[in-house]
């Protein structure tokens, strides 16, 4: 037993020495940030594989890898609408090798579930500003006026589906109800699959969703949009009225972008910002945007613009949430 103990201590010691050596050599190299990036970067995504935010992050990462000439891993840390990923990124050192790809940052921050807001994170760049539509089964409603009339006649009885709770979907439905002066019943669905079949199957009266995920369903005519949440009419849908036309000032959608822990060398942020701009402008990324109907609105915002935008949104959603939670 004694001998065993001794050898284990020896073993432990060896390993620790090894660790110390390894640590030393790495630290000396990590001081110059101009060499960034020297090694693999991790992008934490707070949503499961296959979702909108995940696909977005992976598409961008594919371009970034080429531009920065470095391996980039997408790590899915599902849970709490991105809160877990933000928490983990906050726990990692601010060395520029851990990024967060998120869509709900302003909302989770406004709701208070994300404890690390702009005091702890710096927005690097926004890639997408997605556009919502209000979708129905064509057999049920003809136009947005029809829909609003029906909602007026049956206050609180028209069900509108959305994914998740206390997210952009719910806020959008709530705001629509407010500005149109009607009472809508929001039904939070587990995922878009259940929601889509709910609308087609007639279990839900309507739903809010973006134009990308609904493309196939729209093209074969099983659902149709009543209104688009945007300032100007869409080129692809010239007959589709906008919310602004109707006098409703709700045009927000999910804004997908990247964030990094505060305290990261500004130089690194600049490098990342530049690389991301290149990725955004790349032919392949633009093609993807077009294929999944993400190009309806200009998505790009640089770090400074995106920070201002995020600030605004947090303030705005705080107010909305207060009313919503009354």
């Amino acid at each position: 037993m004694r001998v065993k103990m001794n050898i284990s201590i020896l073993f432990l010691g060896l390993v620790l020495i090894l660790a110390a050596c390894g640590g030393g050599s790495e630290q000396s190299g990590g001081e110059a940030s101009t060499n960034y990036p020297e090694r693999k970067i991790e992008v934490l995504v707070g949503h499961g594989a296959g979702g909108g935010t995940d696909l977005f992050a992976r598409a961008v990462v594919k371009e970034l890898e080429e531009i920065l000439d470095v391996n980039i891993n997408v790590v899915n840390q599902e849970g709490g609408a991105g809160v877990i990923a933000a928490q983990n990124a906050f726990n990692a050192p601010a060395d520029g090798y851990t990024l967060v790809g998120d869509a709900a940052f302003p909302i989770t921050t406004a709701a208070g579930t994300n404890k690390h807001g702009l005091d702890d994170f710096v927005p690097i760049a926004r890639f997408q500003s997605d556009t919502y539509g209000l979708w129905v089964n064509p057999a049920k409603f003809d136009s947005i006026d029809d829909f609003i009339q029906a909602a007026k006649d049956n206050p609180g009885k028209i069900t509108v589906g959305g994914t998740g709770s206390m997210g952009m979907d719910e806020i959008t439905v709530f705001q629509l109800g407010q500005v149109a002066g009607v009472e809508l019943s929001f039904v939070p669905m587990e995922g878009s699959g259940e929601m889509h079949s709910g609308v087609i199957g007639g279990h839900l009266d309507a739903m809010v969703d973006e134009f990308g995920p609904t493309k196939a369903l729209y093209e074969d005519g099983s659902i149709k949009p009543l209104v688009v949440f945007a300032e100007e009419r869409l080129e692809q849908f010239p007959d589709l009225p906008t919310t602004v036309e109707k006098g409703w000032d709700i045009t927000d959608g999910n804004e997908r972008g990247f964030y990094i822990k505060k305290g990261t060398d500004p130089e690194i942020i600049k490098i990342l910002e530049g690389a991301m701009k290149k990725a955004y402008d790349s032919e392949e990324y633009q093609k993807l945007e077009e294929e999944s109907y993400l190009h309806l609105r200009e998505g790009w915002l640089n770090s400074k613009e995106f920070t201002t935008r995020t600030e605004e949104l947090i303030e705005k959603y705080k107010a909305v949430m207060e009313e919503l939670q009354k």
Binding site: G193, H196, A216
Partner: peptide, 26 residues
């Protein structure tokens, strides 16, 4: 229908889109 029933199906849907196709009756 183009509706993903689970996580893997969602990834497959993404794969179709990447190859320029939209699953559905069409």
């Amino acid at each position: 229908l183009g509706i993903p029933g689970g996580a893997t199906a969602a990834v497959l849907l993404g794969a179709f889109i990447l190859h320029g196709m939209q699953p559905g009756p069409m």
